[in-house]
Design a protein around this nucleic acid. Sequence first.
RNA 1: GGGCGAUUAGCUCAGUUGGUUAGAGCGCAUGCAUGACACGCAUGAGGUCACAGGUUCGAAUCCUGUAUCGCCCACCA
Length: 966
Amino acid sequence: MKIELPSQYDPKATEAPIYAKWLETKAFHAVPDERTNKFSIVIPPPNVTGALHLGHAINGTIQDILTRYHRMLGDNTLWMPGIDHAGIATQAVVEKTVFEKEKKSRHDLGREELVRRIWEWKEQFGARILNQQAQLGASCDWDRTRFTLDEGCAKAVREAFFRMFKDGLIFRGKRLVNWDTHLQTAVADDEIYHETVKGQMTSIKYPVDGSPGEYLIVATSRPETMLGDTAVAVHPDDPRYKHLHGKFVILPLIGRKIPVICDGLLVDPAFGTGVVKVTPAHDPNDYATGVRHNLEQINLLTPDGKVNENGAGEFLGKAYSYVGLKFATATRKQVLADLEALDLIAEKKPHEHEVGHSDRSKTPIEPYLSDQWFVRMGDGEDEITLADGTKSTGLAQAAMTAVTDGRVKITPDRYAKGYLDWLAKKRDWCISRQLWWGHRIPVWSKTIPSNVLTADITKYLTGDSATGGISKYLKEDRRVAFQSRKDDQTGEVFFSVCIGHGEEDAEQEFESSGFVRDPDVLDTWFSSALWPISTMGWPAAGTTSAPEDQLLPYFYPTSVLSTARDILTLWVARMVMFGLYCQGDVPFKNVYVHPVIQDGEGKIMSKSKGNGVDPVDIVNSHGADAMRFTLASMATETQDIRMPVVKDPKTGTNTSPKFDIGRNFCNKIWNASRFILSNIDETAAPIDNAQSPVSVLEDRWILSRLHATIHSVETAIDSFHFAEVAQSLYQFFWTDLCDWYLEIAKARIRSSDAVVQSILLECLTTSLKLLHPMMPFITEEIWSKLPQGSSMLVKTAWPQFNAGRKDPAADKQIAIVQQITSAIREIQNRYPAAKGKDVVIKPRTQELQQIIEQNRATIEVLALGTEAHISENSLTAAKPADAATSVLPDAELYIGGVIDKNAEGIKLKKRAEELHKFIAGNNAKLGNEAFVAKAPEKVVTGLREQLAKQQNELFAIEKTLAELSL
RNA sequence: GGGCGAUUAGCUCAGUUGGUUAGAGCGCAUGCAUGACACGCAUGAGGUCACAGGUUCGAAUCCUGUAUCGCCCACCA
């Protein structure tokens, strides 16, 4: 009849079968239905190449707490999982593998074959990180698992691109990209690491045109770039160079006459000579300057990093050429030598600077001017129309407004600032990447010779045919959009056509008319930005009655996005923009930014540093619940959190003592449950939460505490205070329930008291429910052992908070019981001889005397066992001979015949000293008229009461000391 | 360089709008094989709240400055 559990909780044996059961019962599967209360989260899709790290684990834990909590609340709850194709990272991994195995580069394989290999790789390893998430207990709707490169996402990407292209929000422009001269590809900013290089700062003299003997001196760490200079800049207000405004200098070696321009943004007059050389094609700042002043951009580089035909000229009657030399090395050397020979070097000094290197090839990056596609973020003038019909002065502004007007709430709110600041710059977003793995840009282009008049372009493209070929797309209203851009220098027109979703047959037509598809793919963040809507079926949502088609109208906007702060701009801001533009509503109502876990020294955990902890190792050593509890208890409001890392002596892997907290708590839960279940009858049922009156003090108290806990857990989850959730559950379960209630109630438990059984069951079942979102496996396992019902905990309703169960009177009485009990134990600890001896209690108030009297038995059970008693409890109790004393603010306790005078004296004197300080401080405060006049009455009376107690206690101690003649 | 944050017990962190003697866990010390649990129980020690000013009757909490650390962004001719 009694239920028996094994004496140790074994996560390894428990977790997999429980998870299988959840999947079997489709517990995580969400389908739109008539419910109006719904909750949805889209997972930040981890990189397909990625291995699970603690960041995933803490974020997964948080999302699962929210998801499971809302599921239990009865909300229609969807947690949408998936993975990200992670363009460059994935391509690099596969390229590396191919090279290691076959010694073949991607050029050897060719585009199609490489992409095929990456897909193959994805099929093989892509699900690994999601399986690891499942090991943590994540309750994702795996039936809906998505991939940012799957068919649905491709459709969404194509549609979004098309709309923006058509609206002019996507445009083609020049941009300096980070060029890897070894791999001959552009690389993303975050694929670059900086290395400090010892170089030289060279000051070069540029002769002023028409003023023999006068030079402008510019300093540079990259003298070879001077070959591409198209201006020198000074500050407009710099008096040293006012006379040169509008003048020119002659570029040494090349002989080009270049203007002296005034630019207050580029030039800091206090730095160096206050003159800056401007090389628009090879430096980002100079590029921007060039755009401002309409300067010529002279590209000096070939794709493999050598100087092209622009690197030659004539200076002072002598020809110089650097064509074919390696740019940053041979060219630099030669340029310096030639300048030296001309005596045009004013100064050389050692200079350390940061040089960007490609992660892939480990070679220095060259800024390289090339044509790229951009998303226009908006400059505040042109209005755009969002999908809900409202207007905005650009995508960035729309995303800013969504946060400032509260449609998207960021928690903690300080992160909103970074988000807004970044968007306020409205920097156009370069979305083309020179890669093969990704969504290929759906644009076909053709260069139209300069001799074709603008008006004749259509005719030129369609030839004589009025209906055949591409003409129908050019003339009819099809989902095909056009842009053309004339090159100022050559007069050629670059004619681009974007072929939208549903018009794929047009691709062939355009290609046979000489159009060439853009070789680039889109920045991974482009498809990530569509993630909340693409996973829900956009753009086709709501048009059929198929359940898959109803996701978007039902679950969008999602409820919460949980993420790390580093992608608040790159990802979150862009999702908001695209959500508003494509779907007309924000993608999520809340953004929760969780803290980043660092190692014990405050360093970010990383693979290369070897200071990371692998969550899978922790699942193996401590169990998923233990890890989840620990991670949740670390999810405080702070932005970084430290986790000391140590080597596990058994496995040699990294671990942290922090996880023992969770493991110990699991064990506590297990054993308390074991104890309760082994002591209840099969027929026992939890007490009726709403109705049954409860009369026994400790029963009233534990239910009071239980309901306070329900309330605080709800409040904490709703406000994303996950550490508080962990804290209040830990406090309730371990301290209140196990340390106090179970100990107080043990006698009744042994005597099979029916009431206490119903209370125990109520506490246990409710605790399991409250703990389940955070610790799903162990709670589900224990739940399955309960005498009643066979339903799974995962689908069980969340406990109902009942304010009527809160019982301040019971709280107060138990607090006194605890205080007296601890005081007696303290004496016993101090004087081992006190063990087994009776206690005399002398309370100072009638009320306290009564409460102690009412709980005499309880205190005896907790502190005295069976062999001793409270022999007296009265206001006038006399102190026994040689009594050890415990002086409480409201009472004195004595255990006679045990005293060690000296030890007693030391302790009492120490406390007396403390009291003297407190009393003096309080007297000073209360003697201060300003304080009494200005402080709230509550504070003043509280202080007076406290002072009275302190004086009473001090009086008692001094009396005792006198009696001891100390 | 700009922004954000941190600095509270040996360690990791709480500390709600300023208000009665600043809390927790781990670790440490002492005692304990007590009929759930030694991954446990009981008790205890341990803090000038980074530093210097200021506001206030009153500051861990608000303001200013300094120092150290971390993260994000931009990187300098």
